[in-house]
Nucleic acid binder design. Structure first.
Lengths: 230, 230
DNA sequence: CCAAAAGTGTTTCAATTACACCCATGA
DNA sequence: TCATGGGTGTAATTGAAACACTTTTGG
């Protein structure tokens, strides 16, 4: 005799964050079918039989944003497996966190009636509850993003490939909701080795004196908490 | 027509860490059946149809350690879903990290031929490769434990309910593999509000002058990085 | 010239480190 | 009384926060 383990559907759900208009925004889709028909939800879908979890997350991200070569950060967040989280059947969802620069307006996909960027603050405040347990997943994702800004170079993921120190500072100020001293911030990030790669170019797109353009530094390397939200 | 999503078996695997003899050790079981018969593996099992992931992890932990009321910390680590990670079928594993004080010697369970505490250093050094992708899971778990010591009161999870500051320091020194100044350590942890709850009791079990006994402080609250491994 | 953002220097203050020193017990 | 770990005090060093000030553009 051989034991046959119970089966479940495995889904990936995406918390896709970006900054639009100095606000932290999340990508939501409106559900086209039951359950929760018409409600806003995180984009996502089921994992295919021969697909890795990361691959599935990347595929869903490309589908929903209709951009294939995205300069985004994508990492696994955590899994959610309450037996009753989906009324149809047992679904274990592996949530992913994606961060990117101001991304194009989304297009409605096959299984979504509509798609849009919505300010995280509004969504979590409860204006129209999200489907399933997606409010919890979103809250977890935002918390992860906020805390990783503190000790990783992740803030650069919200910026275009080339960005100024002032633009990067705005990322931190927006995600944390606090003002930061521009002078001290400048010293901190330019001083941290491996964080920023200077280019020769400058820009005046933000007004004032020309600012040097930087690219993301090397890796995901941990660093001493270089800035604190409080 | 209604779309039927692909199904997978969902497992929980446990990285159970403890300190034995001033060494970081992990609980391993020897596999009784195929695949990887006879190889060491992380304890784990399949999630039952009506079971939450956390519940399943707690159940497996109780089964493997044969202690029901464990003073252990248990948290989700991450999920692993390579389509080929289990040769039998598609298995998505949700890994959990458990930390506890010097736990009793394990007993062989129903599906494990043997169970034992093994030093993490030995296991990761490659003395007898673990089954499946468990070496990766173990490495991820150890890294999580190490980094959480830095900014959460998690170190106390390795201690008995009542412990001395010196015993707690030994935890940090062992997990990080670095010596810490006993005087400065003492000030740090006793100074951090909510970290430790003093009792009236003292002990001389470690020799020398009697040391005050403490209990874990309140919650999982984050704190400024209170000690650094480097 | 003026406003506005970029970037540097310097002072102040807080935290960490290193280490001298005392304390309370068991052997 | 000596060895051992527990615990306090304090000076030196390091790092963070505050802010005066200069630079370089657009209008």
């Amino acid at each position: 005799m051989s034991y046959e383990p119970p089966r479940a559907a495995v889904a990936v759900d995406l918390v896709v964050l970006t900054l639009r208009d100095a606000e932290l925004c999340v990508l939501l889709v409106r559900r086209a079918g039951a359950p929760y028909k018409g409600r806003w939800a995180l984009p996502g879908g089921f994992v295919e039989p021969d697909e890795d979890l990361d691959t599935a997350a990347g595929r869903e991200l490309a589908e929903e944003t209709s951009v294939s070569d995205l300069p985004v950060h994508l990492e696994q967040l955590r899994s959610y497996g309450d037996p009753k989280r989906d009324p149809r059947m047992r679904v274990v969802s592996v949530a992913y966190l994606a961060l990117g620069p101001d991304l194009p307006d989304p297009v409605a996909g096959s299984d979504a009636a509509d798609a849009a960027w919505r300010p995280v603050a509004d969504v979590l405040a409860g204006t129209g509850k999200l489907a399933f347990d997606h409010a919890v997943i979103l809250a977890d994702g935002v918390e992860r993003a906020r805390s990783k800004l503190e000790y990783t170079p992740l803030g650069t993921a919200f910026c275009a490939p080339e960005f100024t120190v002032g633009e990067l500072r705005e990322v931190y100020e927006t995600v944390w909701g606090v003002p930061l001293d521009p002078r001290n911030f400048h010293r901190k990030v330019t001083g941290a080795t491996g964080f920023l790669m200077p280019t020769v170019k400058t820009t005046t797109r933000n007004g004032g004196r020309p600012a040097r353009l930087y690219r993301r530094g090397l890796a995901e390397l941990l660093m001493p908490p270089l800035l604190r939200p409080a």
